[in-house]
Design a protein around this nucleic acid. Sequence first.
DNA 1: GTAGGTACACTGGTCTGACCAGTAGCCTGC
DNA 2: GCAGGCTACTGGTCAGACCAGTGTACCTAC
Lengths: 248, 248
Amino acid sequence: MRFETVAPVRAYERVVEQIEQAVVSGALKPGERLPSERELMTQFGVGRSTVREALRVLQAAEMIRSRPGDPRGPEVLAASPVALHRSMHRLARADHVGLAELLQFRMILDGSAHLLAAELRTDEDLTGLDTALESMREGVSRGYADFSRADVAFHEVIARISRNPLLVVSEEVVRGVVLELIEDKLEHASNRTSLMRTWLAHHAEVLDAIRAADGAGSAHLAKQALYDNYADYVPAGQRPLLTPLLRP
Amino acid sequence: MRFETVAPVRAYERVVEQIEQAVVSGALKPGERLPSERELMTQFGVGRSTVREALRVLQAAEMIRSRPGDPRGPEVLAASPVALHRSMHRLARADHVGLAELLQFRMILDGSAHLLAAELRTDEDLTGLDTALESMREGVSRGYADFSRADVAFHEVIARISRNPLLVVSEEVVRGVVLELIEDKLEHASNRTSLMRTWLAHHAEVLDAIRAADGAGSAHLAKQALYDNYADYVPAGQRPLLTPLLRP
DNA sequence: GTAGGTACACTGGTCTGACCAGTAGCCTGC
DNA sequence: GCAGGCTACTGGTCAGACCAGTGTACCTAC
């Protein structure tokens, strides 16, 4: 006979539990309102501070939102990837995750997204990619900031076509963290115009592959582009971690 | 000239911000302690309830843990995937992410892990995989629980060989969420013994490919195994989302 | 000297009650 | 009909209190 370890259950935890249960079970739908804190404290039979700590936890999980002064009470939010984004961001910034690992992960995600996009794209998707590429082309002359925005937009379209929120969020997070890590180095990049032209050519090539429904080809191009752009910032000793992903 | 929208900044948010900053910047390392709540409230110049709400948020994000009575104060925790798991699980339960997307993501991660493992494995890694496979073989006769444990161990070795913590953690999280989603269906699985034998054969094949340093081959085997095992639980209309990943 | 017990200072968890700034909706007065 | 203010609420914050529990330092008994 074995016993389980017991942990004291805090009052606020049981409040969280009940409200969360109501939300995931569908008894409380997005847009609906919770009773006010003072009302909740009588319903749960606890003090207001306990209610407030519970609401804080739920708010941190992006399940509810409360605004002072609103007589309708805290609002139940629809499930959103924001919380996923936050927790993944924290994990990716944590120790033990270096630029090499981040880049490796990003090559995997980006490559897969491109593969899926090439196989699943519809005709509207293609026109969307065309306009995104067009605004990148305009961005070259309009300056780095505009170009960068258009670049991000292009990748977002790709991610959207792959139709997998997990892929989208992970990619966003990893891209953000990579940029955070090397932004100081990017500041000093010489000759940005030629850089932008190179990227533009890369993207045009990728788009051709997607148009041709060539999944493997577009995936390889995407990974190769990442490697070409960022491998310089990775310590030479760790680059062998990346090259296996480039084999066709 | 354009102005940005302003949002009132809550006192507890600024407390969270400062502590979080201290943790991610490395000024506070895992295992170290925060000052007590009463000490924090003088340092931040806020009331105790404000400090407590801030600590609750950090605790919900698995960054700190506090136990009553401990004179050393709240403990800073190492980055853990628990929060990631929770938020992904919530998304999955909220139907924004279905089994198809989870499985797609898992095929991507698992495939890449196998590819990297095949390319990066050392001789010790191979013997580690041999022993893991051996205990799976023993597990077949010892019952499903043992077999399942050995299966998990095998995948953990693979993940470790790929040497990317992000990959490992993401894979674990997705695997856990997938299993939670279909555990009720797994309960009723008939003929478990033949199932275990099939899995064992799959793993032996994968190990051969890894031994041969055949990255593409082992990746394909891994993805195919996932598809064979789980595609039945995915609505037929969504299976085309998975098949592009199986092309060689 | 050491093993064991005990007292104490302090921790976090909770409650109460209070005040403030802000909001929504009603309700005037025009 | 509508602009403006009034009011009854909201959440955010603070202060102070009590409790059960913990870790440590001390103190005792051997």
